[in-house]
Amino acid sequence: MRFFRSRLSPPILLLMPAFVIIALVVAVPLLFSLYTSFTGYRLVKPDSLWQWVGLRNYQRLLSDVDFWWAFGRTLVFLTVALNLELVLGLCIALLIDKLTAGQRVIRTIMMFPMMFSPILVGFQFKYIFNDNVGLVNNAIQSLGWSDVTIPWLVNPVTANLAILMAEVWMSTPIFAILLLAGLMAMPRDPIEAAKVDGCNPWQVFRHITLPYLMPFVYIAMAIRSLDVARAYDMVKIMTNGGPAGRTELLWTLIARTGYQDARMGMANAMSYASILLSVYFTVYFFRKLAAARRTMGGVA
């Protein structure tokens, strides 16, 4: 007690438990996994935790074409998925905001896709796009549009599109809910004033509604850019990164390396390389959020 009284001020003492907990649950695991990325650590051989290999894992990554393809594909997937989900989510939110009756029911129904486990969504879409007994091909053939069997999950473009569609289907409601919250919290006076001044609906949306919503958009983007890795289960079920790595994303590659191959040292090196991606997206969206708040007259 004497030690604390003499050396530490009350604010530091009061914050100490929070620092300790954060250190234990965040900093220590992060540092530990960083350390393992410099080792030949294999899950099934605990002794290999002390097998220091220096930069070998990172050197191998630099020359690993498959890893960089997965890195690039993940970047494109994130960009396209987030933008699509934003546009669709915004449209849905605007439509629901206009409803005068039954809004609660619609809001609840809209959240259904979020309630499904990603594994289940993966199985659903795998079946929908199955080239032999799948719904899409059967519909195309039954309606007489074509006799050709389209290998949706094989062609590099359609396979990635199918995964993208599953991801968008599952996660667009998150955007819609967040943006709807923004719309519902929005003051009506500026809109009424703009209408009185003769603005058309597009002008009202472009110059009043959208700027007001931008902080919500960037918060949603920042959350989703980190959260989109949930798509791992879905991709694992639909294609497991194949065929021939055509749909390989960082998450499928890292999970296979870490758990199936048990090469946790290498998997952690991959994770640290891919953290760059998460850091970039988070910094980018938070900067945009600060700028949007400045535009709205808030404190950045």
């Binding site: 199955n130 080239d131 032999n132 069997t149 290998p151 999950l153 094989v154």
Partner: peptide, 21 residues
């Protein structure tokens, strides 16, 4: 073989054979 066979696992094959395809 179905073009999608490169993504098939046992259940997919079983379902396809049971469907008579």
């Amino acid at each position: 073989v179905p073009a999608g066979t490169v993504n098939y696992t046992w259940d997919d094959i079983g379902q396809a054979f049971a469907a008579g395809t």
